[in-house]
Design a protein around this nucleic acid. Structure first.
Length: 363
DNA sequence: AAGGCGTGGGA
DNA sequence: TTCCCAAGCCT
């Protein structure tokens, strides 16, 4: 929700912005406070792209993807003109692949409207892949709107400032209200980024650097001596184990047999080697009936991979085959496996049978 | 509205 | 090793 009036806590915002001017992070998608003061302004396309990539993803992981994407697709029209499959390939390895599907859908919508981004919290929120956080972030950073921007960093900072006893996510509404009261009428974008920088570099989950914090005088948890206890979170359920088998079929020229996963759900729209269903059975028995064809399958190893809500153990089988690809399968481009839309778990599976096969050759 | 949805890095 | 978690969104 955009705020019309000034911050009711000017001291905190001022202290935070002064700290940000000196200690902000330089990031590829960011216009620093000095440049901003000179009248330079961020490109909404780059703000949007970076914010989508940063959802539940670390800054370090995003950097190279952001560079690759903006070089290949410099603006919203270039991205809208790209195929869904090329975007999935470029997104491979970054995770949460529904983001890549929504990215394309959003680019198409904006390009069709002349390439102009919506510039308010509410209108941004209506676009695919843009929720409360991202809408606020784009509105504040790209359009200087005094929107409340609440991410995991901000939740932590606010939880400690006010020593909030309510556990997340139940505390979210309360946190949002507190942030709304802090947002300054001037520099709302810098304020949002400052809050996140503070959470990422000073007010860290463990061992926060309170000695260096510009808000130490404001922090209730620091006074109480227990900042690490916040935010309060409920214990997470443990991840069940699922098992299955994956079948790596290699052709003489190095091509590998692939197929495309359904567009929705886990790894939706990404490519995979043929696999059995991933079941909860614990006996380790895998049915070769699910193989793409009957052959002399050689077990070449086993991999484990951790998804958001379950762990997966896959037995890896390998065979060589030089015929035509079966229905609904295709051969990868020989020597170009690293360009396929392969999620990390599938790269692991292929590597277990064909070491080095998914690596980009360096020269 | 609670659960589905990836991955890699740090402690 | 194991756990936590990182600029959340969708249904």
């Amino acid at each position: 929700m955009a705020l019309q009036d000034k911050s009711r806590k000017p001291g905190i915002a001022t202290r935070l912005l002064n700290w940000y001017d000196l200690h902000h992070r330089d990031l590829p998608w960011r216009i620093g406070p000095a440049d901003l003061a000179q009248g330079k302004w961020p490109d909404p396309y780059r703000v949007w792209l970076s914010e989508i990539m940063l959802q539940q993803t670390t800054v370090e992981a995003v950097k190279s993807y952001f560079t690759t994407f903006t070089k290949r697709w410099p603006d919203i029209f270039a991205l809208a003109a790209a195929s869904q499959n090329d975007i999935m390939k470029a997104w491979a390895g970054l995770g949460y692949y529904s983001r890549a599907r929504n990215l394309k859908a959003c680019a198409d919508l904006i390009a069709a409207q002349g390439g102009i981004f919506p510039d308010t919290d509410k209108t941004l929120r209506a676009l695919p892949g843009i929720g409360p956080y991202t809408a606020g972030a784009i509105a504040a950073i790209a359009f200087n709107r005094p929107a409340a921007v609440v991410d995991g960093n901000v939740e932590r900072v606010i939880s400690r400032l006010y020593r909030i006893q309510t556990a997340l996510p139940q505390a979210k509404p309360q946190i949002r209200i507190l942030v709304e009261q802090l947002v300054p009428a001037a520099r709302p974008g810098d304020f949002a980024q400052a809050m996140m920088d503070l959470g990422a570099t000073i007010c860290t989950p463990r061992r926060p650097k309170c000695m260096l914090c510009p808000l130490s005088q404001d922090c209730t948890a620091l006074v109480a001596g227990d900042p690490e206890l916040y935010p309060v979170k409920l214990p997470k359920p443990e991840k069940p184990l699922r098992r299955g088998a994956a079948f790596v079929v290699s052709r003489a020229d190095g091509a590998v047999l692939l197929r495309q996963r359904p567009s929705k759900g886990l790894l939706g729209g990404m490519s995979e080697v043929p696999t059995t269903n991933w079941t909860a059975r614990q006996d380790g028995k895998t049915s070769l009936e699910a193989a793409p064809f009957s052959a002399q399958w050689e077990k070449t190893g086993q991999i484990t991979h951790v998804f958001t809500h379950f762990r997966l153990k896959l037995d890896i089988y390998h065979t060589r085959f030089d015929g035509a690809a079966p229905a609904d399968h295709f051969w990868s481009v020989p020597g170009r496996l690293h360009d396929e839309a392969l999620p990390t778990v599938m790269k692991k599976a292929i590597e277990a049978a064909l070491p080095g096969a998914t690596k980009r050759k360096q020269n």
